[in-house]
Simulated scan of single mutants.
Amino acid sequence: MKYPKSEQYDKQFLLENMMGPNALKILEELTEGIKLTSDMKILDLGCGKGLTSIFLAKELGVQVYATDLWITAAENFERFKKLGLEDRIIPIHANALDLPYAENYFDAVISVDSYHYFGNTPEFMDTKLAPYIKPNGIIALAFPGFKKDYHNNLPSELLISWGAEDLDTFHSCKWWHELLSQSQT
């Protein structure tokens, strides 16, 4: 796949603000089949340093609530302000397990490379996330995983970069399908 929107961004800026894989390319692919319009309010859950929020605001023209636990709202606000996006992106410092929003507030939730950290319990989708999304709203998730679960026999090449506890949130598509299928949403 080609990434015409993502490839326009300054590579140094991306390197300075990435907290994992290239979130812009992942987001560009994720949103390719989703209709997001400028009148929508989007929750960017687990936004990190806000790269995905920046992309959503600049490329799709939506109002973004950039929510993260590890990066402060003040730090993200300064980054958004430097780019002239302070009127399109609202930075929020919050835990995904205790979101400070009104029910049925968002048209969509986007989560790139973070959902696997907080959404890996059967009740999370229905009790912690879905209440904030309007009826018929969009939930779009992209996160790492395995083709099959290796937790009882992790390949040594994986343990070069990660510890077993780091990989505890990586699961197979089958595992995620079974978990998310339990949701009433």
Rank of each mutant, 00 (worst) to 15 (best):
D168L: 07
Y9E: 01
R88T: 08
P122K: 04
L83V: 07
F146E: 05
N17V: 10
T52R: 00
S172K: 01
D10A: 06
G145P: 09
I54K: 01
T31S: 12
R79F: 06
L45A: 08
I71E: 10
E103Q: 11
F80E: 03
G61V: 13
A102F: 15
S53Q: 10
E86D: 15
C47P: 01
E86A: 11
C173H: 12
A130L: 11
E165I: 04
F143H: 08
S114E: 04
M19K: 09
G119Y: 06
L69Q: 02
A74Q: 15
P131N: 09
F13W: 14
S172D: 03
L154D: 02
S183D: 11
F55K: 04
I138F: 14
G48H: 03
I26T: 13
L180K: 05
D68E: 13
M18V: 12
A108Q: 09
G46D: 02
F124C: 04
D149V: 06
N104S: 14
S53P: 11
L129M: 13
A164G: 00
L15R: 14
K174Y: 10
M19W: 07
L60I: 13
P135R: 02
P100L: 05
K147H: 13
F77A: 07
I54Y: 01
Q184P: 05
C47R: 00
F143I: 03
G20V: 07
K174A: 13
N76G: 10
N17T: 12
N104P: 00
P4L: 09
K82E: 15
G20T: 07
I138V: 15
G48Q: 03
E29I: 05
E16H: 13
E178S: 13
D107G: 06
E86H: 07
L27M: 08
K148C: 09
G137R: 01
C47K: 01
W162S: 06
K41R: 10
N136Q: 13
T37Q: 13
Y9Q: 05
G119A: 02
K81N: 10
L99I: 07
F55D: 00
G48V: 00
E157Q: 05
S181V: 11
E29D: 11
L167Q: 00
P144A: 06
A140Q: 04
G33I: 09
G84V: 08
P100H: 06
L51E: 00
T127G: 11
P21Y: 05
Y115A: 14
G46E: 01
G20C: 02
L97T: 00
A23N: 00
I133R: 03
Y105R: 07
I54L: 10
I160L: 14
K147C: 14
L159K: 04
A73R: 00
G33A: 14
P21H: 11
K5I: 15
